[in-house]
Design a protein around this nucleic acid. Structure first.
Lengths: 177, 177
DNA sequence: GGAATTACGTCAGTACTGTTGACGTAATTT
DNA sequence: AAATTACGTCAACAGTACTGACGTAATTCC
């Protein structure tokens, strides 16, 4: 082993570059940035026996309280089975509750509990800190550019999902309780 | 099922917002952006029976030809065993070759073959296209800001890895040739 | 009202990527 | 010669994802 076995291709000793108009610089930066971006919450999650999947579910249930299982599947782009285990654990551990839909009683609306809200915040905190620090490094004025860039990286058809976000009008969407 | 079982916490019906100073907007954008960023190569990889791990190995071996297994482990931040399977497949399929180190014959220097170089380029092409499109959307002048931001998102201690890159990143970082 | 469809839960089986721990070997260093 | 290093490999296991199929309750369609 270890040597060029006769049949194998010859080693190319020159590095790939941005020659062909391929933007390796940003490709690589994106990889490193995302890796470290997820590393903070990953450590917290480990204490709960949770993984990254739990985080995503928790995040979106907190962001869009009352979304249904089908909507969640659509946002996460995973299958029912993949979600099932993770969601079950979050429900069993009292981070999320299901409420029967009013309009359609087949639907399960998902809501965070106080516990689930707290965990979501705890997980987001280090990420937000990292973002703030990065923005400061590059000048606060750049924030809009970054947002535009990231949004433009998303598939156009799917960009709708992003804007479903709760418009944060302090929303008394329903004044009941 | 489906109802609030007595012991469970009460559902919180208000969406989490950027109130607590948490930057949910960018957190979410980053998730969506990365999800779609990796989706293009994932489809190509499927044709080869490869996964995302193969892509990463292929990428870095092309970027830093001659790096050793230990260096690769350090960049990817995974364990030897995780790398082993993936690397073996890439070698068996003649995308990567190992060459005994000259200085230290225990080391295996990793190089892409022509086949491996071609695949790396094919995988990077759609990603680069997506990046270019996104940059155009946000104005080409923003490129530097994006790079700075992404780099600032990386853990400071690990930022060194980025700059090991084969010089002449996207141009003017150093004025050679 | 009965049939089709929908929303969900769940069971079975599988794949990929990641982990830890241990052991072996060749090469280098002390 | 002994210790260490770089790597390969074996075993066992975990987390997350997938496909396909089946069941049930609720809604919609005719």
């Amino acid at each position: 082993m270890t040597d060029r076995s006769s049949a194998a291709g010859k080693p190319i000793r020159t590095a790939i570059t941005d020659e062909d108009g391929i933007d390796f610089a940003i490709i690589e930066l994106f990889f490193f940035a995302y890796r470290d971006f997820t590393s903070d919450p990953d450590q917290i999650l480990a204490d709960y026996g949770f993984g990254r999947a739990h985080h995503r579910v928790l995040h979106f249930v907190n962001r869009r309280p009352g979304l249904t299982v089908a909507e969640l599947l659509d946002v996460l782009k995973i299958t029912k089975q993949s979600l099932a285990r993770v969601l079950k654990q979050l429900i069993d551990t009292d981070h999320i509750v299901q409420v029967q839909g009013l309009r359609d009683r087949r639907q399960r609306e998902l809501y965070p509990t106080a516990k689930g809200r707290a965990l979501a915040l705890a997980l987001a905190r280090p990420q937000s800190r990292r973002i703030r620090a990065a923005l400061e490094d590059s000048g606060t004025a750049e924030r809009a550019s970054i947002e535009r860039f990231l949004e433009a990286m998303v598939n156009p058809e799917l960009r709708a999902q992003i804007n479903i976000v709760p418009a944060q009008t302090s929303g008394k969407k329903n004044g009941d309780h």
